[in-house]
Design a protein around this nucleic acid. Structure first.
Lengths: 152, 152
DNA sequence: CAAATTTCTAGACTTGGTCGAAACTGATGA
DNA sequence: TCATCAGTTTCGACCAAGTCTAGAAATTTG
C-alpha cells in the first residue's frame, strides 16, 4: 500500500475539490502539495480575512498536518503569486485576504475585526503622481473604526 | 550644587527650546519630564516618520538618557494625546508621524521609506457608511510603491 | 528510483509590553 | 529659597507573540 493514512480517510467529495484546487495552484506555477492544497482550501472556503495563526489552527484542527513554518512559507508564497492579498492594519499581525479584486477595508480597532468595502462604494479622485523611478504596488484604504460604546 | 551634569552642559538656546516644548506638553495634559521633552524634540525637529527604534537611537546618541521602556511608553502616550499619528504600513514596525494634519502616504516596499502626500492632492468621493454602532477613528490611505529597477 | 523540491523541528530574533524598585516632579509649608 | 512628601515616571530585566531560519528528513515529479 502506498497511500498514507490521511489519504485513506479522505472522502471522494474532498478529493474532487482538492484536485480542483491543485490545478488552480499549478496554473500559477505552484507545486500542489498536500499542505498547500489544504491551506488554499481553508483560505478560499470562506470570504473572510485570516491571520497565519488562524490558518494554522484550522489546518491542524483534526490532527497535525502542517507545521507553523509551512504555514508562513505558504502564505508568503501565495501572496507573492497573487493568490491572496496581505492586509496590514495591525502592527502585530498580517491578515490574508482571499478576495484579490480591488476593494477597501473597515478595521475595528476595538475588536480587531476586518471587513470589506466594495471598491465602487469609494472613489479616489485627483490621484497623486508617483515619485520618479517608482511604480505602484497597490493602494490600501483603511477606515479605522471604533465601537461607539467602547471607552475611548 | 543642585544641577545635574546634563543641565550644566546644556546651552541657553536649548533651554529655551525645551521650555517651549514643555509648555506644549503641559497644554495637552502631559507632565513634561526630561525624557519626554527630549523625545518630543526629536520627533518634531524633523519632518520625518520615525520608528520607536530610531527614536531610541537618537535619544541616546550622546550617552544614555532614556530606556527602551520609556520610549515605548512615551510614544504611546503622545499618540493617545494626539501629538503624533501612528502609521501602520509595515507589519513589523509602527511609524510615528509628527504631522497630525490630514494627509496620506507613499510607502516604498523596497526601501521601507515613508513619505507624505498632501491631503488635497487626493479626494475621496462616495465614502461608505460606517457599520452601525461604530464611529470613525481615522482613515489611512497608503500608496504602496516599488523602486522601478528593483527585482520583483 | 533519483533529483529536486518541500516540509519539519527547534530555536533565534524583533517588536512591544510588564513588573517592582528607584528616581524624579511639583505642591506645600517653613 | 529650601526641605519634604505623595504621586508619577523611569529603569532594567525579563516575557510574549509573530515571524523567520537552518539543516535534516520527507515528499513529489519524471
Amino acid at each position: 500500500m502506498t497511500y498514507t493514512h490521511a489519504m485513506e480517510t479522505r472522502n471522494t467529495l474532498k478529493i474532487d475539490t482538492d484536485q480542483d484546487i491543485a490545478s488552480q495552484l499549478r496554473k500559477v506555477g505552484i507545486t500542489p502539495t498536500q499542505q498547500r492544497v489544504q491551506i488554499a482550501e481553508i483560505l478560499f472556503a470562506r470570504p473572510q480575512h485570516m491571520s497565519a495563526d488562524q490558518v494554522l489552527a484550522l489546518v491542524n484542527r483534526d490532527g497535525p498536518t502542517a507545521s507553523k513554518a509551512t504555514i508562513y512559507n505558504t502564505l508568503g508564497l501565495f501572496a507573492r503569486k497573487g493568490l491572496v492579498r496581505e492586509v496590514i492594519v495591525d502592527p502585530s499581525k498580517v491578515f490574508y485576504d482571499s478576495n484579490t479584486t480591488i476593494h477597501h477595508h473597515f478595521f475595528n480597532v476595538d475588536t480587531g475585526e476586518l471587513t470589506d468595502i466594495p471598491a465602487d462604494d469609494l472613489i479616489l479622485n485627483n490621484m497623486p503622481e508617483l515619485p520618479p523611478g517608482t511604480e505602484s504596488a497597490g493602494i490600501d484604504v483603511i477606515f479605522r473604526i471604533r465601537s461607539r460604546d467602547a471607552r475611548h
